[in-house]
Design a binder for these strands. Structure first.
Lengths: 343, 343
DNA sequence: CTTGCGTGCTAAATCGCTCTAGTTGCCGGA
DNA sequence: TCCGGCAACTAGAGCGATTTAGCACGCAAG
């Protein structure tokens, strides 16, 4: 037997489909008694709205799109994403809005999906992540005319709304902390240089290094993978005058770096301090536990959801939200630079 | 200006919308010259199909649904999922089928989503994960009448297709390996006992322990979290006659366990061997590197996608695919039980 | 010269729902 | 008694595509 439609319900109750539609959507235009009967019958027949049919009429899709262009390898590891996703999901489900996630090969494919989903009213809005320098996706989203929130700002995302963390402030606090401990040679194993937040962190490090008059402050870009993180660490520790502290742009890379240090016989934290730019179970279960910049990623996702819902409700609105600056959680991987290097 | 529809194209070319539809779908019923002109104009006007409108007509949604009912915490950590997702995605995108992912609170919500998406033709099929003992979702999916693939078998999933790994065989190989090394007291920090695969692993361990006449073979259920994994490890290592080897049901728990062992001064692998039931970066970057059961999760996801596409193409078909049995990768965390316990 | 048939196309129904423009019936006020 | 107004409801158009039935035309066979 077929899926029941409002026409079926209308027939069974003996009213028109218009009345059924009104009743089911809690709209005026139908008496209380009739409404109750319609609801009753709808329940009995196990009726469910057909979202495609609704979408055709121009209604909300009740869904938000998240398209990610990343290779499998980098996505697989980072707890950050899953956390963010959960938060986003939680925020959206408060208004029972679904999240449509799609992982694609490259940015080209990502933009094509934006165009398709937007024009098919498949989603009411998009969340865009991994903001890049001179990002072509901005324009596509603007053209599509669908509300969108960009994760990672500030600025440079045209008319789109954004939610962003203060990467600069966070990096500054880390550098200040390390400098206060007495470190003068600080290295930074960064992420993809094409990403805006990577750029901001690099700039922050070097700005502060100049002001504090550090001996060395170098940023090494990577692709966020554990293997490149390890390789970068190996290279840094092989230098004649190696850094006494390394800041990693992700928890995974920090863990990999910790492993390399162990392998090379460099004691953490005695001979090398390690800080991760993202907190998760990984930093906690490592030995020694890694000092990390902690932010509530779940809450971050939730905030993202809130902004999304706001701009969906009121198109044309533009919001720029700065989230709480990540806070440095000091664990066992950081200490003043040891005696060995005093000579 | 509005999004162009086939009516707009028809007007501009001077044909009927039927002709346009034929042309755009590569169907016969329109001459070559006309077809070319229509395609040309469609491109010029930047036309894109409206999936909702298509869905209304009963066409394929070109999407597969994956609904996961898990708390944020467990989802965030496991590389397994992200890997699986990538593989699934890759397999599906070969036929440009999208993946609709939704993370929900509980199984109730999950089932509701199945009903909704199925009846709204929002997806052409579902992938179901985390198969439980006496799983109520099976029935819902069967009723929905939408093709579905269950991850984790064999058996007990009614008329649905499945793709499964040989958990039993994998566990047996681990036990055999540890026994061959000389271990007589083996513990198993298991996952959620409600999951079928957890059950199968537990049973396999105990079956083999009986046959090999081991002194001890205990399974401790957990919720897959690092904290419960750590707690279980602590408890096991605090026993008067503690196990000489522990098998963990996930890489995260194995890492947490490794940390606890270090804390308690139990040397790995001299005094304790550790095996993880899932392989990823985590096991590789740990120190010592953890011996793990490795499977190609990406390929696993791809296989899932293939089965999915098959049963979508031919509804009524039922497939049961057993994937390659995970292979034990021996690293540094396993060794014969040390001398200390010989007394 | 008719019949038959394939080709290329049109017109219109259809999918499930929303929403606007009526229509009906009833009540109260003048 | 009649009319205005309101509440309750109906009829039907419309959303964008697919799909079926059918039409007009040309050409070949009888």
């Amino acid at each position: 037997m077929r899926r029941p439609t409002i026409t079926d319900i209308a027939q069974r109750v003996g009213v028109s489909k218009g009345a059924v539609s009104f009743a089911l959507n809690g709209r005026p235009g139908v008496g209380e008694a009739t409404r109750a009967r319609i609801l009753q019958v709808a329940k009995e027949m196990n009726w469910r709205p057909h979202s495609a049919a609704r979408a055709l009429g121009g209604a909300r899709a009740e869904a938000v799109g998240l398209v990610i262009a990343r290779p499998a390898s980098t996505l697989g590891v980072e707890p950050f994403f899953a956390q963010l996703l959960s938060g986003l999901q939680a925020g959206l489900s408060a208004q029972s809005v679904a999240l449509h996630l799609l992982i694609v090969e490259d940015v080209e494919a990502e933009m094509e999906v934006y165009r398709e989903w937007a024009s098919a009213h498949r989603v009411d809005g998009f969340v865009m992540v991994d903001l890049k320098v001179r990002d072509p996706r901005i324009e596509v989203l603007e053209e599509a005319g669908t509300p969108a929130v960009v994760l990672g700002g500030p600025g440079r995302h045209g008319s789109l709304s954004s939610v962003w963390a203060d990467d600069r402030g966070a990096m500054l606090s880390v550098v200040d902390y390390l400098a206060a401990l007495g470190h003068r040679r600080i290295a930074h194993v960064a992420g993809l240089p094409a990403f805006r937040h990577t750029q901001r962190r690099m700039r922050a490090l070097h700005d502060r290094a100049g002001r504090l008059d550090l001996e060395e402050a170098v940023s090494v870009p990577t692709d966020f993978s554990d293997s490149e993180g390890a390789a970068a660490t190996r290279a840094l520790l092989s230098r004649p005058r190696r850094p006494t502290a390394i800041v990693y742009d992700s928890d995974v890379m920090a863990l990999a770096g910790l492993g390399v240090a162990g392998e090379m016989g460099v004691k953490v934290p005695d001979e090398l301090s390690i800080v991760a730019f993202d907190d998760s179970v990984l930093t906690r279960i490592a030995h020694p536990a890694i000092s990390a910049l902690s932010r509530d990623t779940f809450a971050f996702g939730k905030q993202l959801a809130e902004v999304m819902l706001e701009i969906i409700a009121e198109p044309g609105l533009r919001r720029d939200v700065k989230t709480a600056t990540p806070r440095l959680v000091v664990r066992e991987s950081t200490a003043p630079p040891g005696a060995w290097q005093e000579n």
